[in-house]
């Protein structure tokens, strides 16, 4: 399946745009997504940390992603 991943902050710079499309196996988890993105965009690994959000909630690494989910990469936040 193809997943569109939204990017914010420095992740947008790393991906070169506000979203990227990633091909993942069906039943892929957020951990699989991270692995795939880190291969394509190694600079992700240099961040202090980053999270995956699924449907506007922080997602655990084991969670399964479907192509109906809204998926986003959340680099370290710095609001306020």
């Amino acid at each position: 399946m193809e997943i569109t991943v939204l990017a914010f902050g420095i992740a947008k710079d790393i991906f070169g745009g506000a979203s990227v499309t990633v091909a993942l196996a069906d039943n892929a988890t957020t951990a699989d997504l991270k692995t795939s993105l880190e291969e394509k965009y190694p600079r992700l690994k240099h961040l202090a940390s980053y999270m995956v959000a699924v449907n506007n909630e922080y997602a655990e690494d084991g969670g399964v992603i479907t192509d109906r989910d809204e998926v986003a990469i959340i680099p370290p936040v710095s609001g306020g």
Binding site: G9, P76, S78
Partner: peptide, 22 residues
């Protein structure tokens, strides 16, 4: 400041940086 997905970029004379990214 710890959990809400908002990001801040600081602009200096010699460049710019996403705060807390690295």
């Amino acid at each position: 400041k710890q959990t809400v997905p908002i990001w801040k970029k600081e602009f200096f004379e010699d460049g710019e940086v996403w705060v807390a990214a690295h």
